[in-house]
């Protein structure tokens, strides 16, 4: 893009009215998704999942099992897609990469002293480079929420820009940990800041803090993406993470994406769910639509 992009003053990002956002969200949740559109939606949800394990007790064995599941969600029913990516700690990237060889599933790695981000800039860059060198296709960084809340927006901007540089070809997802940002105005400000600093995706949460992803927070981020797109023509992806565990809720998110950004964002190139237990619920729904009877979780592998 040849046009010059002017970086705005992030102290003056557009205001957001919380009640208006809640009301808009309520409209999405009353949409009724039935029959063929439901099946289509459920499969889309599966294909957008970043299957995630981010625990201190993660082992190579656990990661390998999860990677197999990622590629073989439920082989009993034909035509089920794979998930979009697996999301692991940097130390597990190599294992995941090998386990997924021959699939189109991406490996995403959290980085920058995930989840708190409380480390030095140098270590965060090293952390990122380590993951990329081990084969990570995507980097999920966290911002320094303390600096953000103190008003040091330039610090956070520079932090994101430096990690983006360290990413090389890997796509950068920027996690705000919206549960710590307190207001939707802050969510909007963080979104603008991250996109101008080079984020390829913006992401709500680490999954370690409650509340994690919510529809209002996600809507504010989608609207920020829309405004940025209007202005620059560059598409930025969206990843709500944590707290989305039912297929009904996931479909409502898709409705929201569809009616806010349009059909171009309805692919795993531009929209992801960060989730671990969502996949099985979606599979149960698909099985119900396929077989016509309600399912038991005993028939779906837990990895």
């Amino acid at each position: 893009m040849a046009s010059k992009i002017i970086i705005p003053d992030f102290r003056k990002t557009p205001p957001v009215d919380q009640v208006g956002v809640e009301e808009r969200v309520a409209r999405f949740t009353t949409r009724s998704v039935k029959k063929s559109s439901k099946m289509e939606g459920l499969k889309m949800v599966l294909s957008m999942i970043d299957l995630t394990t981010l625990e201190g007790k993660d082992t190579e064995g656990k990661v390998k099992q999860m990677c197999y599941k990622a590629a073989h969600l439920h082989d009993v029913i034909p035509g089920i897609p794979t998930v979009a990516a697996v999301c692991v700690y940097p130390s597990m990237v190599k294992t995941a990469k090998e386990a997924l060889k021959g699939t189109s599933i991406k490996v995403a790695s959290v980085s920058t002293a995930f989840p708190s981000g409380q480390s030095t800039p140098e270590i965060k860059i090293l952390d990122t480079k380590f993951a990329v060198e081990n084969g990570a296709d995507e980097i999920d960084m966290v911002i320094s929420r303390g600096e953000f809340l103190s008003g040091n927006y330039n610090f956070v901007f520079d932090e994101i820009a430096s990690i983006k540089e360290a990413c090389g070809k890997a796509r950068l997802k920027v996690i705000f940990e919206t549960g710590e940002l307190s207001t939707l105005d802050n969510v909007r400000r963080a979104s603008d800041l991250a996109m101008y600093a080079g984020a390829d995706f913006i992401k709500t949460s680490t999954g370690k803090i409650s509340p994690a992803a919510t529809m209002p927070v996600t809507l504010v981020m989608l609207e920020a993406i829309r405004d940025y797109y209007y202005l620059t023509g560059r598409m930025v992806g969206m990843k709500p993470a944590g707290g989305i565990s039912t297929s009904k809720l996931a479909l409502q998110y898709l409705i929201m994406v569809n009616e806010t950004l349009g059909s171009a964002w309805l692919s795993n190139e531009w929209f992801r769910f960060g989730a671990s237990s969502l996949a099985n619920d979606v599979l149960m729904q698909i099985a119900k639509e396929t077989h016509g009877v309600y399912q038991s979780s005993d028939y779906f592998s837990k990895d």
Partner: peptide
């Protein structure tokens, strides 16, 4: 933006 639904909601 393109809102010509690739994903069309079935009648409800």
């Amino acid at each position: 933006l393109n809102f010509n639904a690739a994903w069309e909601l079935a009648p409800a």
